[in-house]
Simulated scan of single mutants.
Amino acid sequence: MTDERQTDEKPGRRARRRALTALSVFVILLAGVFSWRPDDLYLWIKALHVIAVISWMAGLLYLPRLFIYHTDAPIGSEQSQTFKMMEQRLYKVIMNPAMMLTWGLGLYLAWTVYGFQGGWLHAKIAMVFFLTVVHVMFGRSMRRFAEDGPRKTARYWRLVNEIPTVLMIAIVILVVVKPF
């Protein structure tokens, strides 16, 4: 049995293939639901939206943890290279598609179900916008790590790791309770 590292090309191709397969299944399911037009289309779209949100949030919660560990890895080390690969795959293969699907399906629901009406909905969209800002900030940080550029401290990343959690809590309360 050969020793394949995650930074090798072969596991990278397999990971991309698996991710593309999963994304393709999701898109085919989405297209099927739209073309089928079931009576409960809203519930199908909402379910797919929740799946996309969970995938996006998983990445938003995990990527800063990788940054914490990457910060402690010596620049140029094999460990640093592994973290670079993990961060890139998480961001590009999971987080970006999940964010786009979250926005697309969420805006579809906001328009078709609520007509963009309701203070709670406007607040929720604002919170999702802030999550997107965090997402972009993580992408820039990932690129700095990839270039072996200046690094923030592990303490910084532990604090930043709480931002998606706080926003998620606010969003869930707004969606479920609809306080205004």
Rank of each mutant, 00 (worst) to 15 (best):
M1W: 04
M1E: 04
R5P: 00
R5S: 14
R5N: 00
Q6S: 09
Q6T: 11
Q6Y: 08
Q6P: 02
Q6H: 07
T7W: 02
K10I: 15
K10Y: 04
K10T: 15
P11F: 08
G12I: 06
A15S: 06
R16I: 09
R16A: 07
R17F: 13
R18F: 11
L20D: 14
T21N: 08
T21W: 13
L23Q: 15
S24A: 15
S24F: 10
V25G: 04
V25E: 03
V25A: 12
V27E: 08
V27M: 15
L30M: 14
A31Y: 09
G32Y: 03
G32Q: 03
F34Y: 13
W36D: 03
D39M: 03
L41G: 00
L41D: 02
Y42M: 06
Y42D: 02
L43G: 11
I45D: 02
I45M: 04
K46P: 06
A47H: 01
I51D: 11
A52M: 02
A52V: 04
V53E: 00
I54G: 06
L66A: 07
F67D: 00
Y69W: 11
Y69C: 12
H70D: 14
T71P: 04
T71F: 00
D72W: 07
P74L: 09
I75R: 06
S77I: 07
S80W: 02
Q81S: 10
T82N: 10
F83R: 08
K84G: 14
K84V: 15
M85F: 04
E87S: 12
L90S: 10
Y91C: 13
K92H: 14
V93L: 14
M95H: 08
M95W: 09
M99C: 13
W103R: 01
G104S: 05
G104M: 05
L105D: 01
G106A: 10
L107W: 01
L107C: 05
Y108D: 09
L109A: 04
W111A: 10
W111M: 06
Y114M: 00
Y114D: 11
Y114C: 04
G115I: 01
F116E: 04
G119M: 03
G119W: 02
H122G: 07
H122I: 08
A123D: 05
A123T: 03
I125V: 14
A126Q: 00
V128P: 02
F129I: 10
F129K: 00
L131W: 08
T132Y: 12
V133L: 12
V134H: 11
H135L: 09
H135C: 07
V136S: 05
M137W: 13
G139W: 10
R144L: 11
R144I: 02
A146F: 12
A146R: 11
D148N: 15
G149N: 10
G149S: 12
A154K: 07
Y156A: 11
Y156E: 10
L159D: 07
N161Y: 08
N161Q: 13
N161A: 15
P164W: 01
I169M: 15
I169Q: 09
I171K: 02
V172E: 03
L174W: 03
L174V: 08
V176G: 00
V176S: 09
V177M: 09
V177S: 05
K178L: 05
P179I: 01
